[in-house]
Design a protein around this nucleic acid. Structure first.
Length: 424
RNA sequence: GGAGAGUUGGCAGAGUGGUAAUGCAGCGGAUUGCUAAUCCGUCAUCAUGAAAAUGAUGCACAGGUUCGAGUCCUGUACUCUCCGCCA
């Protein structure tokens, strides 16, 4: 969410951003409510002030005066309570509208209304050519007995899968490779639960925007997070950090759950879109400085690219346009991996800068060394590695004529020295 | 699942219904000058104000009792101790 002071002073910029991001929010109404809340609060505060003054007098008052004070104080209290009652619905509406206010995107972000207007900013790696008939990942999995699709779906529902044999070994090697890399880059690596309370989802901004894409466990008031970001972001909720603590860099590993409610009939085949997967997520809290945030953005993007390069998977970097980036984002770059079996690039990573939008919701602040002032921090996140989706690109790119899959050099130590898996 | 004890500022830590002590750290200022000490102020949010300042709110969270709640009551979350169950 934005600073209300900024909205008061720049309503036109906010309106323009809403249009660019294809969001609807009545800014004039928000400002009207803001004004009204302040008016009522002033009246309420005047009553409370009266009551406080009377309370102060109370212990030293004569018995008759005490009775008088009781009466006066009660009146003020009741008056204040009625103002508070009046405020309640206004504040609720204010809060929910504030939650919808958008971060003003970076000036160089492409303007557009849907993902069709995203811009490819660079392509890295060479697409492989095959002198045999190439297979897609499902065919490769069948051939090598790497997947349990049918039985698992019957037990666990659609979009679930069991990963078997050497493909599981590969999956785990990829996690380990990524965790090790991020550790050497200075990240605090941490496995985090997927279960969390509702609050954490509001903090990140997943709620109220994406309510339908999250699994809930009503009996225990818990929800299943679709990304470790939800948990990592709330670790410092309410904290006032020291500037010298920043940047805080977490690499979280967790099972991730997504209902995929809006994706009925889409990507139903194979590993592309499943309800449960595992992910290493990069998450950063840095000081409130756009240049610093941009630097961090490039850093976490670079980390993800390095993994892709060392895995020898061709990919492209997308500049997501305003209409595809979500309310909170200042800048967003997806990484899409080349998947020869589908003859297209598929999203495997999503790198986002949110400035203070998320930190305001979560109440993550820090004390500036020089001034002693308390400021909202900036937050960023990017995928480190998401399996099994990245396995699709991995095995399709590295497949051989006999159905085996070669293991790039960098990963061989994590695979017990194997140079290939599967095949005859 | 059962029983008990807790949760107070960046940190530590008092506070048994009447203005949230005190210490440390940070920031601002004063003073003295050998790398520091001492003193004063400030130290979360909001409103009014050019500012100084003034006022309101803030003691895990949400309610309640009361003229008045950190303090009493109810619910929730978490932490610790013990019992039970358990990979």
């Amino acid at each position: 969410m934005l600073d209300i002071k900024f909205i008061r002073e720049n309503p036109d910029i906010v309106k323009k951003t809403l249009a660019e991001k294809c969001l609807t929010l009545d800014v004039d109404e928000l400002l009207a409510i803001d004004k009204k809340i302040i008016q009522i609060k002033q009246l309420m505060e005047a009553e409370l002030q009266k009551r406080n003054a009377l309370s102060k007098e109370m212990p030293k008052a004569s018995p008759e005066r005490k009775e008088e004070i009781k009466e006066l104080s009660k009146n003020s209290g009741q008056q204040a309570a009625s103002y508070a009652e009046e405020l309640k619905p206004l504040e609720e509406q204010f809060k929910s509208m504030m939650g919808m206010t958008p971060t003003i995107p970076a000036p160089d972000v492409p303007r557009g209304t849907s993902e069709d207007e995203n811009v490819v900013i660079r392509q890295v790696g060479e697409k492989p050519t095959f002198d045999f008939e190439l297979k897609d990942h499902v065919e490769l999995m069948d051939l090598n007995n790497w997947g349990e699709f049918k039985k698992i779906s019957q037990i666990c529902g659609s979009r679930t899968v069991g990963i078997k044999g050497e493909l599981l070994q590969l999956e785990m090697a990829l996690w380990q490779f990524t965790i090790n890399k991020l550790m050497t880059k200075g990240f605090t690596v941490m496995s985090v639960p997927s279960l969390s309370f509702e609050n954490a989802f509001y903090h990140t901004g997943h709620f109220p925007f994406d309510y339908d894409s999250v699994y809930s466990i009503p009996k225990d008031n818990l929800y299943l997070a679709g990304t470790a970001e939800v948990i990592l972001n709330s670790i410092h909720a309410g904290d006032i950090l020291k500037e010298s603590d920043l940047p805080i860099m977490y690499a979280g590993f967790s099972p991730c759950f997504r209902r995929e409610a809006g994706a009925a009939g889409k990507d139903t085949r194979g590993l592309i879109r499943v309800h449960q997967f595992s992910k290493v997520e990069q998450y950063i809290i840095c000081k409130a400085d756009v240049a610093e945030s941009d630097k961090m953005h490039q850093f976490i993007l670079q980390n993800a690219e390095e993994v892709m390069q060392e895995m020898e998977i061709p990919y492209q970097i997308i500049a997501n346009c305003t209409g595809d980036m979500g309310a909170g984002k200042y800048r967003m770059n997806d990484i899409e991996a080349w998947c020869p079996g589908q003859n297209q690039y598929r999203e495997t990573h999503s790198c986002s800068s949110l400035l203070d939008w998320q930190a305001r919701r979560t109440n993550i602040r820090y004390r500036e060394d020089e001034t002693g002032k308390v400021k909202y921090a900036y937050t960023l996140n990017n995928t480190g590695l998401a399996t099994p989706r990245v396995l699709v690109a991995f095995i399709e790119n590295h497949q051989q004529a006999d159905g085996s899959v070669r293991i790039p050099k960098a990963l061989q130590p994590y695979m017990g020295g194997k140079t290939k898996i599967g095949g005859k």
